[in-house]
């Protein structure tokens, strides 16, 4: 595996859509966290792409990384995928190189691979961190919200290398940088035949689905105070008006909306220009995901709900009543 580089790095695992060969926005959205970490640690910023020279080139062209590892696996065609082969590839690169910190985005494929890599390397992993910093002793500290307990936990992984974190960030458009990115190809040998093969992959895009919360400048959020039948109606209203839909954990846990609409600690972080919170009490678990919205309007039946102090406009009303009127007005 090539020459051993002596310099240390912060390495970002670049997740991409395996079938379309496109970089997932989540992979690049953590670049700000990664950059500030490399500056504090005075190490270089590197990226790792498994089994797609095309994606490696795409990322290298952005000029954000010092080096991109274009990791290929012997006899594995582009588009062939199984999580363990990919995890083993990441593991091998970490064993051969001096990786101080390994960052993963929070896409589902990354959340599958990251803990596997951590255990293979006998190192620590912290999930869903919102920020990373270096303390006065030079230790990398992650900040992990744990809002069930209303706390931010600061967690380190002392004395281990690499320290592994999955990073939950705002989805951002990435502007091109001016770094000259070196692409380093690494070809890994396969030690045994794969024990798992992906035999089918089908896109199930639903044309009638509501707009995702990160895709709109205006978002309506639904909480436990909204009746299930009204969530259905609101979904239609939001789609018709071209505005995004968001949900609290109580709503997605009940299966009333899919997880892709979940906003907050364990979901997405959004910053729309206008956020309309319907029947949402204002638990930190959810509010952390919308706190950077420009305007927050809350409709809640109780003026004692915590959201009252966290919004710009408060309407004291049953959100279900308001939805009924909104439906009448928009859907006719």
């Amino acid at each position: 595996m090539g020459d051993r580089h002596s310099e240390m790095s912060v390495l970002v695992y670049i997740d991409y859509d395996i079938d379309r060969k496109l970089v997932r926005r989540e992979s690049l959205s953590l670049i700000h966290v990664a950059q500030s970490l490399t500056e504090s640690l005075r190490v270089s910023l590197e990226g790792l792409v498994v089994n797609s020279p095309r994606v490696a080139k795409q990322v290298a062209d952005l000029g954000l990384f010092t080096r991109i590892y274009d990791v290929q696996i012997e006899n594995l065609r582009e588009g062939v995928y199984d999580p363990v082969t990919y995890a083993e590839a990441v593991t091998e690169v970490c064993r051969a190189r001096d990786v101080a910190v390994l960052l993963f985005p929070t896409t589902l494929r990354s959340r599958e691979i990251a803990p596997y890599v951590a255990a293979r390397l006998s190192t620590g992993i912290v999930a869903d961190v919102s920020n990373l910093y270096v303390d006065e002793k030079g230790e990398v500290i992650s900040v992990k919200p744990s809002f069930g307990e209303n706390v931010l936990a600061h967690i380190s992984i002392p004395g281990r290398r690499p320290k592994i974190f999955t990073v939950r960030t705002y989805l951002t458009e990435v502007t091109k940088g001016d770094k000259r990115t070196e692409i380093e190809s690494i070809v890994l040998k396969r030690t045994d035949s794969p024990r798992m093969t992906r035999t089918r992959s089908v896109n199930i895009e639903d044309p009638d689905t509501a707009i995702l919360p990160e895709r709109s400048t205006v978002v309506i959020g639904v909480g436990a105070g909204v009746l299930p039948e009204n969530i259905k109606l609101l979904r239609e209203v939001a789609r018709r008006m071209g505005i995004g839909l968001a949900a609290t954990k109580k709503v997605t846990d009940r299966g009333l909306l899919p997880d892709k609409f979940l906003v907050g600690e364990s979901g997405k972080l959004i910053r729309p220009r206008l956020y309309i919170a319907l029947g949402i009490s204002g638990a930190p678990q959810h509010m952390t995901g919308v706190k950077e919205s420009k305007i927050i309007v809350a409709v809640n039946i109780s003026e004692k709900a915590p959201i009252v102090k966290q919004c710009d406009y408060f309407v004291r009303a049953d959100a279900n009543e308001l939805i009924r009127l909104l439906v009448e007005r928009v859907l006719g």
């Binding site: 936990a153 600061h154 967690i155 992984i157 706190k291 915590p306």
Partner: peptide, 14 residues
Amino acid sequence: PTRVVKVENYVPPQ
């Protein structure tokens, strides 16, 4: 391998 260094109370932005 992981250590909780400190735990701070979270006060949501008002």
